[in-house]
Nucleic acid binder design. Sequence first.
RNA 1: GCCGGGAUAGCUCAGGUAGUAGAGCGCGGCCCUGAAAAGGCCGGCGUCCCCAGUGCAAGUCUGGGUCCCGGCA
Length: 308
Amino acid sequence: MPVVCLVGPTAAGKSELALALAKKLNGEIISCDSMQIYRGIDIASGKPTKTQSRRIKHHLIDILKSSREYNAARFQAEAKKIIKKIHQQGKLPLLVGGTGLYLRALLDGLFKGPGQSIAWRRKFYQQAQKHGPAYLHQKLQKIDPEAARSIHPHDLRRIVRALEVYQTTKQPISELRKKTEGLRADYDWFIFGLNRPRHELYQRIERRVESMFRRGLAAEIKRLSRQKISQTAQALLGYKEISGWLNGEYSKEKAKELLKRNTRHYAKRQLSWFRKEKDLEWIEIREWDNPKLVANKIIALLADQLTS
RNA sequence: GCCGGGAUAGCUCAGGUAGUAGAGCGCGGCCCUGAAAAGGCCGGCGUCCCCAGUGCAAGUCUGGGUCCCGGCA
């Protein structure tokens, strides 16, 4: 059974293209996006509008309160079920989004290990604060030299994760990582990466940030920050940039500038992640390309690959 | 017009006592397995405004010029 994926950097135009594809292919869209999961994060996460999502069924959008944590494992489990269900209905699952880790978790799986342990994390971060990150890295060196080699001494987040896994399982993470199971072999995957010339992508980011401000980004962030907000949701691009402005640390213009810059950096990281994705076919589009025609082109590519 | 200050990497600027240049940011590349819109790593030969002079040697000293920014007229 086929699964079509459409990934790529933010602001490349994935959502619009996905809608055109879903319509022509009798598909349903599964969002592969760590922020669109949340209710109330609409403008900032670039969610499709209600009129858009009414026409085509969208999954994994608006399923969680912003106070709740989310992660790749949950995504994997939920997406798995939805893919199956869509196939049962005789439709085509269309996975769309920019969260590279989520896609990889689905394709190649995650190792069978424990989830996050808040208690251990807190403890290790306290230790890092006191003795520096190098101290934790040395600790890791002792219990799991292989992991220590692959994790940079400054990359505290991964060091802590490795230590936390060891504490709860007494097994080195480097061993656990060797056993993963994904869905790569279970379906025929067609993975497309949407991209544009860098300067055009950056122009689109610029315009998108401007339009977010016009549509009420500040009010949305204000609303979010008044409630309890999870660590996952707090990572939202725009959250800290806008909060700084609202708290009077800098001007609105500065906030805009920061958000634009950080979004560019994010897009760059996404590209570098997707370049490594196996069997991904890049679709390079330009400003003047019509999404419907691009959709046709992709469908032609699909037909091609199905027959060969 | 006069008096100060300045002209060095895309931008903002560092560069005692002269020995052919650096830092932040931007920008580019990369890493990534249960927080991923997060987190981490790497990358700088550039007419040092121009001309002349003194030095073995001049962003660095001397003289002249050009432009910019303040203040006073």
